[in-house]
Simulated assay, not measured.
Amino acid sequence: MAVRKLKSGKWAADVTVGVKWDGSRDRRVETYPTKGQARKAETRLLMEKERLRGRVTARITLAEFVDEVYWPQKAGLRANTRQGYERDLRRRILPALGNMELEQINKLNIQRMISGCPTRKTATNARETLSSVLGCAVEMGMIPVNPASFRYTYPGDGAADPERGGVWLTTFAEHMRLLGLLRETQPGSCVERICVIGLCEGLRKGEVLALRWEDVDLARRELTVRGTYTQGIGGAHETDPKNRNARRTIPLRAYAAERMAAWGPGEGPIVSGTGGGLLSPVTAGERMRRFTAGSYPDGEPLPRVTMASLRHSFATACVNEGMEVSKLSRIMGHADVKTTMRYYVRQKLGDLKAAVDAMDGARDKTDKSL
């Protein structure tokens, strides 16, 4: 059994699913124009083979399904995505549900698994991973619905830690205060470069690390995202952007262009590691933690920003400055503006007070003019 390319340029899925009534092999060969279509056909034929053996039914346990069906079908997952799925399965899902047959998994026992997670973030990740696994079972016709797609109650609902995942700087004034300190104390360092690109351009942390000098046009003040560098199974991996919307060309803000001109232009990665190569995501995170453990000259502790919260800080500050969300979403590489607003914009109480004060001030001016 295999997927192979034919001389015609098409792709064939070739699977022996069993034995015919006369004792000969029941070999199925299907041809498709693309390799992806042939792989899907191979998976379908392999499932047919397992059904004929009487092994893959709804009575298979979740752990068996993951090993025998799910992982073989998800061979093309990005390394960092697979690492996250494996972590969720090992720590949360399989200990709670692994010995249960697929048809026994319902909303009640999924809620118990979610309630046993220490934080909302870990619970959300576990549910999304489980939804991917059970969605595969639905596609195979093994269960009628995906119970992990239902609504659930998460740990910490209504009491989320506002600084979980790193502090969000919600105004450009906060951004410039931090960037000004870096310009004075660590000019050209990897931390300054990470913060400038993250706060001024809103790139994902993997996109920041994969950005090269040839991706930046200082004269036109444009930046093109062509790849990402993330931690996964076996270490860090450089891959294509997360999705087609992530491959994008965006404007380069004046401050970012000014600092990049001071750093270079050079060759290779803008945020470079030892020997001029790509900087490890682990090393980058550690250097950010060391920097944010310090303080401003007046003694005020530095905000504990992370590579992830820099992107969120960019989005929130842009909204506070009045940028149209559809334009912001395109800059950030999102397919849907709902993603931008739901996950990347978070207002502080001070921001809300400032907005109310501005509204009151506008009303007072109107009253005086009457």
Rank of each mutant, 00 (worst) to 15 (best):
D88G: 05
A257D: 04
T306V: 06
S326I: 12
S189I: 05
R220Q: 15
Y85D: 00
K35F: 10
V15T: 10
D14R: 14
G23D: 12
K35T: 03
G227P: 08
G76P: 03
L169G: 01
M332L: 15
E258S: 14
E86H: 06
D351L: 11
R44A: 15
E103I: 11
G135F: 07
T283R: 07
Y229T: 01
Q73L: 00
L134E: 00
A246M: 10
K74P: 01
A362N: 03
L62C: 07
D157L: 11
V133P: 05
P269E: 01
E64M: 09
K205V: 01
G188F: 06
E86W: 08
L6K: 15
E64L: 11
G333I: 12
A210V: 08
R82G: 07
T339A: 10
N109I: 07
R289W: 04
T249C: 14
E201P: 00
E50Y: 14
V325K: 03
V208R: 04
D336M: 11
L178V: 14
Y154T: 09
E192N: 01
G18V: 10
D14N: 15
L278N: 02
C200T: 02
A123W: 07
L169M: 14
W21Q: 07
L181T: 04
Q231G: 11
T57P: 07
A41P: 05
Y32R: 13
G135N: 04
R287N: 09
A236H: 02
T283G: 03
Q186W: 13
R287Q: 12
